[in-house]
Amino acid sequence: MQVSVYRYNPEENTESRMQDFNLEIPRGKDLMVLDVLELLKEQDASVTYRRSCREGVCGSDGVNMNGRNGLACITPLSDVVKGDSLVLRPLPGLPVIRDLVVDMGQFYKQYEKIKPYLINDEPPPSQERLQSPEERSKLDGLYECILCACCTTGCPSFWWNPDKFVGPAGLLQAYRFLADSRDTATEERLAALEDPFSVFRCRGIMNCVSVCPKGLNPTRAIGHIRNMLVKRVI
């Protein structure tokens, strides 16, 4: 199989390039893309990427595989390889540090902007705060986000306004706290999102939904936020 990898190391060359590797893929085994990267790294130790849990929960190895964002560790070759070639590029829309490693700073900034923590200034009870299973079920599909950035870096609105549009991942978390029956900062959170950029740059094209490796639906969460914002002024 031919694997084409985006290479960039500003120490050596100011230009990026694509490097082709020919790899023998063991027959009868459907390798994950991360396995392929590990094989490449054995050939050339300078190939650089992030990885850790290798089971799709840490969110380190978001990359662009044959044009599609996803986690290398849980993407089998059979899902992405067309013909006999695989093109690996860094996640789009963020500055590249080296090879497949991007600078996630802007992504994290947007996450921090939505105050991703429970706010409840009432003194806590001596035990847990009670929450019914129905209230808790509102958090399903929200809290599972692993911050891999596959969605946000697949969103054109984030490409254009990375400093002002919160992006699908951040908005999913914004709604995770808006939907939490224990959080009391709804008004403050909504007020911080009502400008024309933070939420309203979402055009509902659902790239985020189609690439999310955890099967989450940021577009739906954004819709919920918009409804809350609209209800607030009407």
């Binding site: 009502e194 400008d195 024309p196 950029f197 933070s198 939420v199 918009r226 914002l229 609209v230 002024v233």
Partner: peptide, 14 residues
């Protein structure tokens, strides 16, 4: 940037 008082919700509703 937005004009003072301009809101995304208003834009969206309009």
């Amino acid at each position: 940037m937005t004009r003072p008082g301009r809101s995304g919700i208003l834009d969206w509703l309009i």
